[in-house]
Nucleic acid binder design. Structure first.
Length: 466
RNA sequence: UCCUGGAUAGCUCAGUCGGUAGAGCAAGCGGCUGUUAACCGCUUGGUCGCAGGUUCGAGUCCUGCUCCAGGAGCCA
């Protein structure tokens, strides 16, 4: 088929000058000249820039419609593409006809006025905020980052596996879960002991929304060697912070015949690759975020590509923190988990770039992480990014059945996760993987401070609007 | 969930000692201009988050609630 050109095609120079052109989109602003014409800035979202449309007073609907256009009106314009006579843009569309597709009912109360809005306010009109520069840019960044992630894994032999959203494992080990049920909450079936009888529920047992696709991913890793998941994930934690969502997207590669060092290398190369792709694909959008939200953004992203990440063991990290001379609110002691303030120090002040911390104490990490030979630590790693904190968490998985059983037993996991044990009973292999919070990477890549601005419609405690 | 701060015009905010509401932007009208965060003039626009209380009188003081933001915990 033959596609209608969009603004991006004009900006990229793919549309011939002096040639007929039809564009459709939304009015950002209108400026009238008493020289006998008006300027309308048309955006169609295809790229950061809009295109200036020049409308002569001789147009049939100039008085009746064009002079009444306001921000948000949808229009279709046909005319000729010209080199712009004015400053500020290379091209402009000299219109022969302008058709109003949709008016804005009440321009005064149109939520996206021709002025600056706070991000907090725009969250309250999340259905209209994609029309702003910021959220249009964010949507394009989000898409380009997704595509880059798929591209990286595809290029390196990883298969995308769609792991289930609904799970019956109530102990996936990562926080509170949302219950999935078709039971009538007003008339819950009870068993003899007075407990809710979940055997009558849709799945014949309790079911939840997944908090991670990792365990299912491992099943495919132990057959296809290299796989990754990329999909929605749910946490019912009552977390009210700028870094948490109840529904978010996670990327979880799992690699067979790999150890911790290998997966750390993969994680670093992966981040460098997707950031590099982003810099190439979204120059104008990154320029905007750098100009308006974080002056150091572009430089920081270029650093990710050109500088190797810092690496240290947990034991070294503790030592660095203890010798830092900094007064921390929480104690720094071998065996305790690193707090936000510690992670921030390591990434922002000590290394001033992403840091990979490896070999954490076994006691503070998840059951599936592989015990190291020292008997105290496990083959876990976190990547800490300046301004974000933990952006990736990963590990080599415990492939030795006896050791896995030892760690599953106290958690009572053997019953529900028999299938997970099977992966060690039948042709077990060393393997490793990591989880990446997609929106956390996106906030890092855009310089935005609140993760709620990195997802189209944020779900957080107390709010599932739109 | 905890700590701190906040809620006043469509938006961002000011509002003194408790005395009946103000600005900028937006919007509307007019002027000017190959304009582009335009500019100049005029105009419209308010259940001061909700519910109680104190007071002759509450945007202002008190209590409770709701919502929002930042930080913490949990985590990705």
């Amino acid at each position: 088929m033959r596609w209608q050109p969009q603004v991006v095609d004009v900006i990229m120079g793919k549309v011939a000058l002096d040639a007929p052109l039809t564009l459709a989109g939304w009015v950002r602003s209108r400026r009238d000249s008493k020289g006998g014409f008006s300027f309308v800035l048309l955006h169609d979202g295809s790229c950061f820039d809009g295109l200036q449309v020049v409308l002569d007073a001789s147009l049939a609907n100039y008085e009746t419609e064009i002079l009444k256009l306001s921000a948000g009106c949808s229009i279709r314009v046909s005319g000729v593409l010209l080199a712009s006579q004015g400053k500020g843009q290379a091209y402009e569309l000299k219109a022969d006809t302008l058709e109003v597709l949709g008016w804005v009912e009440d321009p005064e109360s149109y939520p996206i006025a021709k002025k600056r809005h706070t991000l907090e306010y725009l969250r309250s009109v999340a259905h209209l905020r994609p029309r702003t520069n910021t959220f249009g840019a964010m949507a394009r960044m989000r898409n380009s980052l997704s595509q880059a992630i798929h591209r990286y894994f595809d290029a390196h032999g990883f298969f995308w596996v769609n792991t289930p959203i609904i799970t019956a494992s109530d102990c996936e080990g990562a926080g509170e879960m949302f219950r999935v049920s078709t039971l009538d909450f007003l008339k819950l079936p009870r068993n003899a002991a007075g407990q809710v009888d979940f055997s009558q529920d849709f799945f014949g047992k309790e079911a939840f929304l997944t908090v991670s696709g990792q365990l299912n991913g491992e099943a495919f890793c132990t057959a296809l060697s290299r796989i990754y998941t990329f999909g929605p994930t749910f946490r019912a934690e009552n977390s009210n912070t700028s870094r948490h969502l109840a529904e978010f997207w996670m990327v979880e590669p799992e690699m067979a015949f790999a150890d911790l060092a290998t997966i750390a290398d993969v994680a670093e190369a992966f981040l460098q690759s997707v950031v590099s792709d982003l810099l190439n694909a979204r120059d104008a959008d990154i320029a905007f975020f750098t100009e308006h939200y974080d002056k150091q953004l572009r430089g920081r992203l270029e650093n990710v590509i050109h500088q190797p990440f810092a690496r240290m063991s947990y034991t070294e990290a503790v030592s660095i923190l203890q010798k830092s001379g900094k007064e921390f609110q929480f104690p720094v002691q071998w065996g305790l988990d690193l707090q936000s303030e510690h992670e921030r120090f390591l990434a922002e002040e000590y290394a001033k770039r992403p840091v990979i911390v490896m070999d954490y104490p076994e006691a503070i990490k998840a059951f599936y992480m592989r015990r190291n030979d020292d008997g105290k630590t496990c083959a876990a790693m976190d990547i800490l990014a300046p301004g974000i904190g933990e952006i990736i968490g990963g590990s080599q998985r415990e492939e030795r059945l006896a050791l896995l059983d030892e760690k599953m037993a106290p958690l009572g996991l053997a019953e529900n996760l028999g299938w997970y044990r099977d992966l060690r009973r039948y042709g077990t292999i060393p393997h490793a993987g990591f989880g990446l919070g997609f929106e956390r990477l996106l906030t890092y890549a855009t310089g935005m401070e609140n993760i709620r601005d990195a997802i189209p419609f944020p779900r957080v405690p107390g709010s599932a609007e739109f």
